[in-house]
């Protein structure tokens, strides 16, 4: 068992989830509270990674953010190395790739908050930040949990972006899904079985946990 890869995968998923929750919460609030044409455009943009092949994303990150473009050179100067073949590169890729998995549940959760409450809070002078803090976050806790778990698992299961951008470097870009791929390629089906079992167990347990949690809450509410 490749413990280093497991640790790296969990670290990548944790960092990605933390960043994405911080980004997605204001974004989701903006989408729920916003009016006008830009809102649809923003929502489309936030959903795009869901339908875009990961290879497109990998290509953009590799070429557009690589050392051959001005943005890429700026990033390289900032980090001291190109984004590709590094943990930070994978974080950037994962944040974009998993964005919809954080935004969608949050938008659904925030939109389900009683509009009367939102209007009342607004009448009492609550600004958007206060609305999110005192209304959306406490009332949409379940959606926030769902967003976190889905983001985490989607990042754990990420493959295409890592394959295009990672360079298979142990301890910095060799994630479990890459290990599994290498094991299959090396005809080591026994090891591949073990790696696959861990990925499966991780995902199944986490999903079962959120569904059990939501059932419990649903039961209490009824």
């Amino acid at each position: 068992m490749d413990w280093q890869a497991l640790a790296l995968t969990l670290r990548l998923a944790t960092v990605t989830t933390a960043i994405l929750l911080a980004v997605a919460m204001p974004l989701a609030a903006l989408l729920v509270l916003g009016r006008g044409r830009w809102r649809a455009a923003l929502e489309a943009l936030a959903t795009l990674p869901l339908v875009l092949p990961p290879t497109v994303l990998g290509f953009f990150l590799l070429v557009l953010l690589g050392p051959r473009t001005a943005i890429g050179r700026a990033i390289t100067a900032l980090l001291g190395h190109p984004l590709a073949f590094s943990f930070s590169g994978l974080v950037v890729g994962s944040v974009i790739y998993s964005l919809p998995f954080a935004v969608q549940p949050l938008v659904a959760g925030f939109a389900a908050v009683e509009p009367g409450l939102v209007d009342a809070a607004r009448l009492l002078g609550a600004g958007p930040v206060r609305l999110v803090r005192t209304l959306f976050v406490p009332l949409a806790r379940r959606s926030i949990l769902a967003a976190a778990v889905l983001t985490f698992l989607h990042t754990v299961g990420e493959f295409g972006v890592v394959l295009m951008l990672g360079g298979d470097i142990p301890g910095s870009t060799r994630t479990l899904s890459i290990v599994l791929y290498n094991q299959v390629e090396a005809f080591d089906y026994a090891a591949a079985n073990r790696t696959a079992a861990i990925l499966l167990a991780l995902s199944a347990t986490a999903l079962a946990a959120i569904y059990a949690g939501s059932q419990l809450r649903g039961g209490r509410r009824a």
């Binding site: 590799l62 690589g66 050392p67 051959r68 890429g72 590709a84 073949f85 360079g167 298979d168």
Partner: peptide, 20 residues
């Protein structure tokens, strides 16, 4: 300092794109 590509064409692409 190695970046490992899935196949030799990808290795060429890693260095052609300037990332390696």
């Amino acid at each position: 300092r190695l970046a490992t590509a899935e196949n030799i064409a990808q290795a060429a692409q890693f260095v052609y794109s300037g990332n390696a």
